[in-house]
Design a protein around this nucleic acid. Structure first.
Lengths: 211, 211
DNA sequence: ACCTGAACACCGTTCAAGT
DNA sequence: ACCTGAACACCGTTCAAGT
């Protein structure tokens, strides 16, 4: 998976007044905080403080806290889409590629749980007003739909409506991702590897053309 | 589905000092608020105020806000389990019964989204310390596992490890439930009926013994 | 045993003022 | 244009005191 190095956003020098690229720095700082401490403990005050900037400086660059979170979620969907495309391409754009996509999806969620929580769940309601967020989420979903259409053309997948088929597969990976993130599999299959592998086989049987 | 009438918890009379059954009243009031306004807007202060009681009275009955939410989630799992058992029993404890369980699961989530959000997602971490919560969640899961074992004995379902098979099915319904609740299907299949119906057929093919 | 009221340490957000 | 500082209206939680 393409991993962007977690470079720390620079603190403002005490002397200078302007930060430089405060918008970007705030997004990165929010990301770091969310990844280490979770979304629920993210405060605008702390973000400002860690950048050596007033706690209200954020409002010059984001309309409010929700807008900051929408930007985080949007970045998450971008990374997820890249991970999915890479898996699909690198494994031959067929059944193995499709399975690799599923694995990549679950791994992304397991590796960036806080990220994933911002992308889905409870913020989405307010994020749905953010056009860029919706667009990025749609782009990620389209990778899945396209891969299904391509497999249907190759006679690998049953010729049902691709978008409902995609929503079914999405449900499976999303469900696994959430169960893993919420620690619902803790103890029996913490990372969800056994489940992911098993589900890959079941989904293959569920959607194959030659059933 | 068995629906408990949403009887409003009684306000304390201004004159009297003791409320009576404040613990129960607070749980019910929290439920009402969550169902109408969502979890994120639930405040202990409002709960107290609506019951005509001081905003700190709650601490006599719950250790903190998390404990209140754990009690809500626990009640949610109880109702979900009852709905699942009813669907399974009333449709013949076979393939139709299993499909009815799946439908009942998704319907429960769609009908009580805020409930479902408390049961899963982000609170679970702290709820996992609450023994009663964990027990109730386990009981609901066991209904699913038992139904799978029963179908395996009848030769209807492939003889894989029942618990991993159950986790796969759980992922499917949980994934659908979350997508519906988060409004991710809004516009195309808002209530998720088309998806639920389609998924039922796919899951049947995925887990059938005579594949 | 059960509840209150004031107090504490937090929030997000606004707005006039500074640079 | 960008940032600050004080202020406002909220939170959850603690704790001594009342009934």
């Amino acid at each position: 998976m393409a991993r962007t190095p977690a470079k720390r956003p620079h603190r403002k020098r005490p002397g200078q007044y302007h930060h430089g690229d405060l918008q970007r720095a705030m997004l990165e700082q929010a990301l770091r905080t969310i990844q280490t401490d979770g979304v629920e403990t993210l405060t605008l005050r702390a973000v400002g403080e860690q950048l050596g900037v007033s706690r209200t400086a954020l409002y010059r660059h984001f309309s409010d806290k929700q807008a900051l979170l929408a930007a985080v979620g949007r970045e998450g969907f971008r990374r997820l889409r890249i991970a999915l495309t890479a898996a699909w391409d690198e494994h031959g754009r067929g059944r193995p590629g499709f399975e690799a996509m599923g694995v990549a999806y679950v791994r992304f969620a397991a590796a960036h749980p806080a990220y994933y929580r911002v992308m889905f769940g409870r913020f989405v309601e307010s994020c749905s007003k953010d056009a860029a967020f919706v667009e990025e989420a749609g782009a990620a979903f389209r990778v899945l739909v396209d891969s299904i259409v391509e497999q249907q053309r190759a006679g690998l997948v049953r010729p049902d409506d691709p978008s409902i088929l995609a929503r079914f597969v999405w449900s499976v990976v999303h469900g696994m991702a959430m169960l893993i993130i919420d620690g619902q599999l803790r103890g029996v299959d913490t990372g969800g590897d056994a489940l992911t592998h098993y589900a890959a086989g079941r989904v293959r049987d569920a959607i194959r053309a030659d059933a």
